[in-house]
Amino acid sequence: MLMQIVLFEGFDPLDVVAPFEVLAAGADLAGRPEDEVRLVAADGPGAVVSGTRGLTLHAAAAIDPDAPGYVIVPGASGAVDAIPVLLGRFAQSAAVPLVRSAMGNPRVTVATVCGGSLALGMAGLLAGRPAVTHTLGMEALAATGARAVRARVVDDGDLVTAGGVTSGLDLGLHLVEREYGAPVALAVEALFEYERRGTVHR
């Protein structure tokens, strides 16, 4: 199984690193080292600059919408008035056709952290779907045609969305529980000394 976390210009680093570490720990504790967590980008391998003081991460490969597993879209960071611009750029980027293809693949679950759902909504991918984003973006999310739900994590089967930036931890733990079971998720919580917050809306 491949768990892909999408990088794009201006991404929020915690939206990426929190689920990356949780999912990697889950795979290790489940005895599934073959399950890979990979940073990806629409343009393939290369450095991608975040929205937080130039912090840069490296995409290892291009987004693969055909690989069974998960595709996770983070939000953006930086000045508050710049975030909608960055999300709007993503919504018009080469990543969108790839994410759309992943959403049509029954072997793939697409997930988002924070503004990632708003970016997908701006791209027209969430019409009629229940979803959550950062509290500051809930009205904007509803305006895209998504059904905005105030919850920490919203699980709609092949689409799982999470709220504000720290909810990347909760998203990761929810996906670990879905994939590997509650005992493994509890073991990851103990390892990270973190207990899940809020409610999962199904």
Results as ranks from 00 to 15, higher is better:
121 G>Y: 08
49 V>S: 03
99 V>F: 10
53 R>F: 10
52 T>E: 13
107 R>N: 14
14 L>F: 14
80 V>M: 12
25 A>H: 11
18 A>T: 03
99 V>K: 09
79 A>M: 12
117 S>M: 07
49 V>C: 02
73 V>C: 09
112 T>G: 08
66 D>S: 15
65 P>S: 10
74 P>W: 06
45 P>L: 08
122 M>E: 14
92 Q>L: 13
17 V>L: 15
41 A>M: 07
96 V>E: 06
69 G>M: 08
77 S>C: 05
113 V>L: 07
48 V>E: 01
93 S>W: 04
85 V>N: 01
94 A>K: 05
62 A>H: 07
116 G>H: 08
88 G>N: 12
82 A>T: 14
124 G>S: 11
89 R>T: 13
92 Q>N: 12
71 V>C: 10
125 L>K: 11
63 I>R: 05
30 A>N: 09
124 G>F: 10
61 A>E: 14
90 F>K: 01
50 S>P: 01
94 A>V: 02
81 D>C: 00
78 G>F: 10
34 E>N: 09
49 V>I: 13
34 E>M: 02
12 D>Y: 00
97 P>M: 07
18 A>L: 13
108 V>T: 14
48 V>N: 02
106 P>N: 10
116 G>V: 08
105 N>L: 07
94 A>Q: 11
84 P>H: 04
123 A>Y: 12
45 P>N: 10
63 I>P: 09
58 H>W: 11
86 L>Y: 01
92 Q>P: 00
112 T>E: 07
48 V>C: 02
102 A>N: 13
42 A>H: 13
18 A>M: 06
107 R>F: 00
34 E>G: 15
42 A>V: 08
103 M>L: 15
16 V>R: 02
79 A>L: 14
60 A>F: 02
91 A>E: 03
17 V>G: 04
100 R>H: 13
96 V>M: 06
72 I>T: 10
116 G>T: 12
111 A>Q: 07
42 A>F: 05
54 G>A: 02
116 G>L: 08
11 F>S: 11
28 D>P: 00
88 G>D: 14
48 V>K: 02
19 P>D: 01
72 I>K: 05
23 L>S: 03
17 V>Q: 14
9 E>R: 14
126 L>G: 11
117 S>K: 05
119 A>M: 05
47 A>Y: 03
68 P>W: 12
21 E>A: 11
27 A>L: 07
55 L>D: 00
100 R>Q: 15
39 L>G: 10
56 T>M: 04
62 A>P: 10
74 P>V: 09
33 P>H: 09
41 A>H: 13
